[in-house]
């Protein structure tokens, strides 16, 4: 395990460990989940997550 003491070291290390596709897939998954949870206004999903949105204080109510 290499000593990593700065943020740029960490970014460089992550760069080495991950392929471009893995990064893209991770970002896409995160964006998808965020949109799904926060921005979805379709009645079915909106209503289904009604109590969750209130419990978490999500602003799109």
């Amino acid at each position: 395990m290499a000593a990593t003491h700065t943020v740029s070291d960490r970014i460089a290390q992550a760069n080495q460990e991950l392929t471009r596709w893995e990064v893209a897939a991770g970002l896409a998954l995160t964006a998808g989940l965020l949109i799904g949870l926060l921005l979805l206004q379709q009645p079915l999903a909106h209503d289904g997550l009604h109590n969750f949105r209130h419990a978490a204080g999500v602003v799109c109510h």
């Binding site: 995160t30 965020l34 949870l37 289904g48 997550l49 009604h50 969750f52 949105r53 419990a55």
Partner: peptide, 22 residues
Amino acid sequence: HVMPETVTAAASVAGGVVWGVL
């Protein structure tokens, strides 16, 4: 409400889990 309360409740629990994992 387009869905019964129980479905809403279950979906909200699932939403909480997804929220935590995210």
